[in-house]
C-alpha cells in the first residue's frame, strides 16, 4: 500500500474529463481539477445527504446511486451529480395526534401512498446507506413504528428513496415520522422527569 498519492486516475464527472490522484473523493477530484462545485456539497462526511451522485463504473452498464463525498474515484468512472433537493409533499404536526392510539390512523391520513407500495425494491436498491427501506415502509404501514424507525438509524435524508419511488411514497419521511412518534409518545425517562420536577420547584440553582 503506497500512501503518497502519485498515480492519477482519469474519470468523467458531470461530463467533464478529469484526472485526479487516486486517494480523492469525487468532490475532491472535481475541485482538484479546477471545477467549481457548490450545490450538492454538504458535510463532506456522509451524514447530510447533499452530494448524491449517479455512478457508472468502467465496463458496466449498471448505474448506481451513491454519496459523492464518500465515493473514491476509480479509473473510467462516470459520475453525475443530482443537485436538486426534493421537498416533502406531506405535512403534519405531532401535536395533532391526540394519543398514541391514534398514530396508525393518522399515519395513513398523512401518508396515504404508503399502503400502495408495489414492492419494486427500488428504494432499498438506491439507498446509499444500505437501509432496507422497503421493509421500513411495510412495517410503518402495519403500525410497527418503533421497528420501522429502528431500521433508519443511519438515514441521512438524502431523498434518493423518494425520487426512486414510483408510487410517490416518501420512505425517508415515513421513517422519520415513525421515529418521531416513538420519541414523542414513548420516551419518558424517569431521571429526566425527576430532574425537571426538582427544578420546577426551584431546586438546584446555579451559583455563579
Amino acid at each position: 500500500m503506497s500512501i503518497d498519492s502519485e498515480n492519477l486516475i482519469s474519470l468523467r464527472i458531470n461530463g467533464k474529463d478529469i484526472s485526479a490522484p487516486k486517494s480523492h473523493s469525487v468532490i475532491q477530484a472535481l475541485w482538484y481539477a479546477g471545477y467549481p462545485r457548490v450545490k450538492g456539497v454538504g458535510c463532506l462526511q456522509g451524514v447530510c445527504g447533499s452530494c448524491r451522485v449517479l455512478v457508472r463504473r468502467a465496463g458496466s452498464t449498471k448505474v448506481t446511486t451513491e454519496l459523492g463525498c464518500e465515493l473514491l474515484i476509480e479509473e473510467g468512472m462516470d459520475v453525475h451529480f443530482l443537485i436538486y433537493p426534493t421537498p416533502p409533499h406531506q405535512s403534519y404536526q405531532l401535536e395533532d395526534i391526540r394519543s398514541s392510539w391514534e398514530v396508525q390512523a393518522k399515519f395513513h391520513e398523512i401518508f396515504p401512498e404508503a399502503e400502495q407500495c408495489r414492492h419494486c425494491a427500488g428504494c432499498t436498491t438506491t439507498c446509499p446507506k444500505g437501509i432496507d427501506v422497503e421493509r421500513g415502509v411495510e412495517l410503518a404501514s402495519k403500525g410497527r413504528f418503533s421497528e420501522a424507525g429502528e431500521l433508519f438509524v443511519e438515514c441521512v435524508m438524502c431523498n434518493l428513496c423518494q425520487t426512486a419511488c414510483p408510487e410517490m411514497i416518501a420512505p425517508n419521511h415515513v421513517a422519520l415520522f415513525s421515529r418521531r412518534v416513538t420519541a414523542y409518545f414513548h420516551i419518558r425517562p424517569s431521571n429526566l422527569i425527576n430532574r425537571l420536577e426538582i427544578m420546577r420547584k426551584g431546586g438546584l440553582k446555579v451559583i455563579e
Binding site: 424507525g149 421515529r179 420519541a183 420516551i187 419518558r188 425517562p189 424517569s190 431521571n191
Partner: peptide
Amino acid sequence: RWLIQQGMQFELDQYGDL
C-alpha cells in the same frame, strides 16, 4: 424534554431512562 417532544430519540437503558 423539548427535543424529545420534537421527536428526537436518545439512548435509553432497560428502564427507559436516559
